[in-house]
Design a binder for these strands. Structure first.
Lengths: 266, 266
DNA sequence: CGTAGTGTTGAATTGAATCAAGTGTCGTGG
DNA sequence: CCACGACACTTGATTCAATTCAACACTACG
């Protein structure tokens, strides 16, 4: 399997994550020969709080697959649960298909984030997950992760924390969806993306949206048209500068001010 | 500390959980002298999949506090995270206060369910949780649960599953809030309650709602008035029989039919 | 017995969806 | 390299589901 040509990519200069030549192990995030120890995401991914030898043990169970192309599925709803996945580069979306065939997006995943924990309890993934762009993944077979967690208290502790974080985040989304207006949801979404980009050392104020307006709408419980209208409205207010998928947050505090400014319902 | 008088309760005959005299350790769910081994919830709570000696070890770290009165707080938003809690009897709601003082309910908890996992990651509870009625709790100090999980692979596995279940459930709520109509949300909510009551051997078709219409509305992202209207609408359709807090699901399949019957948005 | 909290119902309003008609952008193959 | 087609996005007009405002009934508890 020649990994080198697969990571080749004639990406345009405005790509959020510039893809470099696959020469250095420490540099190219698409390169699947990278180790946990040398990965630049190790500070926010699973290896956090592990010592050198522990990282090595984790490294041994991680499988680095071929890169995923835009639209490729990591898994589909109801597939047997086998692994959780850490995003190494690119981005993914999870979605479920409702009875009438319409999809609803349940989450977006950026580098350093963990995908697939919804399958742990039922042993089947509860949603489908696909790449939004050229992307790569570290696959972590869950049974092995459990075994290793049993040996390494730090890893167990950290994985509890990762799951707890997911729960806390989901509850924030619950509040967002149950009480925020379209404008508040959108502002909150942009701010959330901003801080997640910052986590991976990308600009928190200028980035490319990896997802479509439709994806955003399905995630926030809005229609495409509403998302589009809100974007132009925020632009008219001077809070953001939107140009297709390119976005610049021009007034972070102003965006924060949007949230909660509209009076909530009873 | 006399536990006997605290569990005394002149509950009306229509109480969902009839409170019995605190004589037998195996019977009264409010009785705090019950052990995990003798608890009738052991099949769905933490002890599941543990053997006798393991249950004993779990039992040793569980703290059974005094019962909680309606409105008592288990913890408040931003309190330091110390424990997770298993509901032994009664019910609880979690909520957050939005900036403008309005509360939004993030969850309801029935016997056998685990509360407080939102605090694991940040070490502070992300919401406040209070009893909806006379209730009792098993407190499980999290650091001890972690230590024990490290010794008992079954417990580690099961706690991963409990957290994974919470994540999967939260994502279903995400879909519910982002794409269901008021009627679909309400029907789905009632069906969810029904199966949760069934889990604890209560009638899945006739039960008392432990929460107010307002709580339901705050949870589902609707106003009190809408919830009330939907209830009467479902009653007119012959699907339910509502009488204040008493509810009877007269046509479960009909209620299931509501969900997804209204066309979803783009 | 009165009062506060809880629940219901009606009428008017509104935020976001729907319907409709475009323009812009990208990737593909001729 | 350009033309084509498919998809992504925008904007406007209209509609509608749910909120808001308002008034009132019920219940439960001190």
């Amino acid at each position: 399997m020649k990994s080198s040509d697969a990571s080749e990519d004639k990406s345009s200069p405005k790509a959020a994550i510039v893809i470099q030549s696959p020469a250095g192990d420490k540099v190219c995030p698409h390169n699947n020969r990278v180790s946990c120890a040398s990965c630049r995401l190790s500070e926010l991914c699973l290896p956090i709080a592990l010592n050198k030898s522990e990282i090595q043990q984790l490294d041994d169970i991680v499988e680095r697959n071929r890169p995923y192309k835009k639209g490729d599925h990591l898994y589909r709803q109801n597939d047997g649960f086998k692994s959780v996945y850490a995003v190494r580069s690119g981005s993914f979306k999870s979605y479920v298909l409702s009875d009438n065939g319409q999809g609803r997006v349940t989450g977006f995943y950026l580098p350093g984030e963990i995908i697939g924990m919804d399958g742990i309890a039922s042993k089947h993934y509860q949603n489908s997950t696909q790449a939004l762009e050229h992307a790569s993944i570290c696959e972590i077979p869950f049974s092995q992760l459990e075994r290793l967690s049993h040996q390494l208290p730090n890893l167990q502790h950290h994985f509890f924390a990762i799951m707890g974080n997911e729960i806390a985040k989901d509850q924030q989304v619950h509040t967002l969806l149950s009480s925020y207006t379209a404008e508040e949801r959108t502002a909150s979404f942009l701010l959330g993306l901003s801080s997640r980009f910052a986590r991976v050392s990308l600009s928190p104020t200028r980035f490319l949206l990896p997802m479509t307006r439709s994806d955003i709408g399905e995630y926030l419980g809005l229609t495409v048209e509403t998302v589009s209208r809100i974007f132009t409205a925020l632009q008219r207010k001077g809070l953001v500068d939107v140009n297709n998928r390119e976005i610049e947050l021009k007034d972070i505090d102003g965006l924060r001010g949007i949230i909660g400014s509209n009076q909530a319902k009873s």
